[in-house]
Design a protein around this nucleic acid. Sequence first.
RNA 1: CGGGGCGUAGUAUACCGGUAGUACGUCUGCUUUGGGAGCAGAUAGACCGAGUUCGAUUCUCGGCGCCCCGACCA
Length: 417
Amino acid sequence: MRQSNLFTKTRKEAPKDEVSQNAQLLIRGGYIHKELAGVYDFLPLGLRVFKKIENIIREEMNALGGQEVLLSALQNPELWKTTDRWNDNKIENWFKTELKGGGELGLAFTHEEPITKMMTNHVTSYRDLPKYLYQFQPKFRNELRAKSGIMRGREFVMKDLYSFSRSEEELDTFYKEAGVAYENIFRRVGLGDVTYLTFASGGVFSRFSHEFQVISTAGEDTIYIDTEKKIAVNEEVLTEEVLEELSLERNKLVEAKAIEVGNIFKLGTKYADALGLTFKGEDGKESSVHMGSYGIGVGRLLGTIVEVLCDEKGIVWPESVAPFQVHIVDLSQGDEKIQALALDLYKDLEKAKTEVLLDDRDLRAGEKFAQSDLLGIPYRIVVGKHSTETDFEVVRRSDGLTRGVSREAIIKGEYGF
RNA sequence: CGGGGCGUAGUAUACCGGUAGUACGUCUGCUUUGGGAGCAGAUAGACCGAGUUCGAUUCUCGGCGCCCCGACCA
């Protein structure tokens, strides 16, 4: 893509009402636009990153045996009354709306009820199970206070997977696999070193749920980490009893602020019982389906990557989620030869299916570099006075290292760092 | 929901009971050209409503919106 054609613009300053680093940088870079408090639009660059993250999650969910669906955002109150979750005293952050002809509707804040009900049409026998359904779907939560930029919004896209198993054991097995898939996801988006499996409050059907917490001062949660075992405990469940149960020693735990980027937990038969999701076993007996729920906020994950990996100059995207792999900065300043060098390289990279952004705008070098740093594309190729037809200067964004790289190697994506 | 703060140009800000100034941005021209450059010119603004007043962007009240701390967060 040519930058001269991109409608978004970078800014030197962030709006004063954005305090969080993730939103400041994303707005300055033209990745997102704030629509309302806690409500953000994704612009072309932001959407590219969003889709990259979404695809990594999708690949891992498919590898788990997940089948992708898309459930509606408008929801039937009757289902929620069945489980006693329609009442505003029970669920405070509902967005509710009305039909013209009378009657209420809910705007989805989660999907346990509708997906469980939907599955009653498809599950009758033990042969129909287990099944794993997931979706990327907007969720609406009427937060009393939106905050932390895109980390806690009122509308956000969540990947939610629901597992439908025949027994507790079958659920346990899948639950463990899902945990591994989650670790894969966070590693693949560049957060592997700072993400901890964290024990958090469970529910009626399990002692604990598990959160995936990324260490960050921007986090809202406090966790206690055992760095040797690479697990953590959320402060909300930290008691002597729990420590003993998990064989952890209090004096070995390190306190840290963390961002919850994922959460998995077992639902048992709670929703299946309430909504009649049962199956006939081999013995002909009717049993309730054992369910689990597995969530990742895509926007929050994107914001977390910005928050954790940025530096004083701007965003630093890992290659796996970057909007482009290569940023060609054309410093021709009217020199047609240099301009042609940049343009030829750009065209050849596009032919080679490399995602490349060409800064072909007529701006000064300083501005271009500053904006390029802000955008955070992993590799920058500077085409200027020193460039030749065969050699270019490549700068790695993450550490600023610079190398001379041959045209041939660049086309192959081999920069030699 | 409790507490606090704030609403002036696209952005960041200043001043003022007598209709608003600066910087960045944007546009034009010239100069400049490897880290947000310079000169000249131009563009563009008081959240909404009511009240007080000769006069309100300024004071008062109400509404709306935004931010922060806390609470909340299947």
